[in-house]
């Protein structure tokens, strides 16, 4: 029971991080139909810059702000340098070029910061833990991540659903040519989306940094989970990304525990210890398959 509470909280917190990465990705897909595999790089870059800036500027918070902004700027630079030349091109070209960008930047990070994992200290304000219930303490920082993620999600939802720019983004996602024909500079709009998306991924990277080890290639694991989130939620939909991020986060933590427990109930001895972990690691992909089998366009498709 206690374990379930902790796993649910962890799942929610993972979901919030995934949402931050998936939000930018889904909007970029939605508006520009652009496959950006290099989005995970922003997450990694955010974490590395967070470590560096926190050392230089002396503190987690300064690191968080500076790293998020730099990650956003770096994303815009990449967009200007490479990605904007790929918009009209096939999915295949986009995948290959962004694959090249990942290889380059992962190695660049290794060159600058080295291969050894780095660590980022938690801010002192949030480094404690509190009593969740009797005999169970839960770290404040994880709750803070979930809270910050939720706040950003609400802000983003308000931005997309309540502002003029958000309206244009939604319009662009459902019919780009029509929006363009109505006199909206779709490329400028897209740069805005891209910059914000890159910044959010960087932000998520810094937030995650104190919980994980910061190392080259860390972006891709998150990226593929973010893909799963987008596929489940429906491409281009912020609401879908939010719901799916929480589903994936919960399934990956709660489901993992449940499956291992179930395997021990159904099978005995060494067989359970073998089947459990294998099945648990496949769980979110099986959920994805199940959703797709029922609703190929995802839970909340942006295009009707």
């Amino acid at each position: 029971m206690i374990l379930l509470v902790v796993q649910t909280l962890n799942g929610f917190q993972l979901g919030m991080l995934l949402f931050l990465v998936a939000a930018g990705l889904t909007l970029v897909f939605g508006v520009m139909n652009f496959v950006n595999l290099a989005h995970g790089v922003q997450y990694m870059l955010g974490a590395y810059l967070g470590v560096t800036f926190a050392q230089m500027a002396g503190g987690f918070w300064a690191g968080l702000v500076l790293a998020s902004l730099s990650a956003g700027l770096f994303g815009l630079a990449l967009e200007w340098l490479i990605f904007r030349h790929l918009y009209g091109r096939s999915d295949l070209d986009q995948v290959l070029a962004t694959f090249g960008v990942i290889l380059t930047l992962n190695e660049g990070v290794r060159l600058i910061w080295g291969s050894a994992p780095l660590e980022l200290a938690m801010p002192r304000l949030l480094s404690g833990s509190f009593a969740l219930m009797e005999g169970l303490r839960y770290p404040v920082y994880r709750v803070a991540i979930a809270g910050l993620g939720l706040a950003v999600a609400l802000l983003l939802a308000a931005g997309v659903h309540r502002t003029r720019a958000g309206m244009l983004i939604r319009a662009g996602a459902s019919n780009r040519d029509m929006v363009s024909a109505l006199g909206v500079d779709i490329n400028r709009l897209f740069r805005l989306v891209f910059g914000i998306g890159a910044m959010l991924a960087g932000f998520a990277g810094v937030l995650a940094a104190p919980l994980i080890s910061v190392e080259p290639g860390m972006g891709e694991n998150v990226l593929i989970l973010a893909f799963v989130v987008i596929v489940i939620g429906g491409i281009g939909s912020i609401r879908g990304a939010f719901a799916a991020a929480i589903i994936v986060g919960l399934v990956d933590t709660v489901g993992r525990g449940a499956i291992t427990g179930l395997a021990h109930l159904m099978l005995t001895g060494p067989a359970a210890a073998k089947v459990g972990p294998a099945l648990a690691s496949m769980l979110i992909y099986l959920v994805m398959a199940a959703v797709l089998a029922l609703r190929p366009a995802g839970l909340f498709p942006a295009r009707a």
Binding site: I82, A97, F99, G100, V101, L103, T104, E107
Partner: peptide, 8 residues
């Protein structure tokens, strides 16, 4: 660092 940019 060479292979990646070459690919792009």
């Amino acid at each position: 660092l060479v292979f990646g940019p070459a690919l792009v």
